[in-house]
Amino acid sequence: MKRRDSLKAITLSSLGFAGLNPQIAAAESIVPPDIKPVKIPGGRQKFEAERDAKLKADKFFTPHELRTVTVLGDIIIPADAKSGSASQAGVPAFIEFMMKDQPQWQTPMRGGIRWLDNVCVKRFEKKFADCTKAQQIEIVDEIAYPAKAKPNMSQGVSFFNMMRGFVATGFFTSPIGIKDLGYVGNTPNQWEGVPADVLKQYNLSYDE
């Protein structure tokens, strides 16, 4: 048996027999000698480090789904004069991780992409990611503005709201996004109060 297959077999038999025969379960729980223990980064608990390593090794999105998320992400946050795009900031990989970290998002995400593809196939005979830019924007315009969206697009609105949130979080928590936003903290500092010019701008003072 190949090593990979023997590991699979161990997992299966553990699931099947652990409750019946503790000796077998105990024997199988011994970690094979060539599996390296997970390195625990500072500030993490062991179970967290192990969980993160497993999540990073797993895959959720299919290549098509990942491509769709990437296209949509860059429509939501494109590159502009000030900074790069969602995909340049690594947003698709962040969303991939969150799907595994918080599985309650999996159905709305996977189903939402499917909903989008279905609408596009009906209208353009192509899935969203394969549509022309103009076709993609035509659909996005119909789901990106909740107040003016047609009732038959309401599920798309919900999906787009979710995507907008994930893309914004992913982008603005990345090095590119933090620089764009202008957050300048997270460093040893002395707090001397609000700068004088800002106080003046808001007509406030520390003497009141």
């Binding site: 907008r164 949130g165 893309v167 914004a168 979080t169 928590t173 996004g177 903290g185």
Partner: peptide, 8 residues
């Protein structure tokens, strides 16, 4: 510092 949830 922007954290998870920012922009939702």
């Amino acid at each position: 510092m922007p954290m998870y949830g920012f922009g939702f």
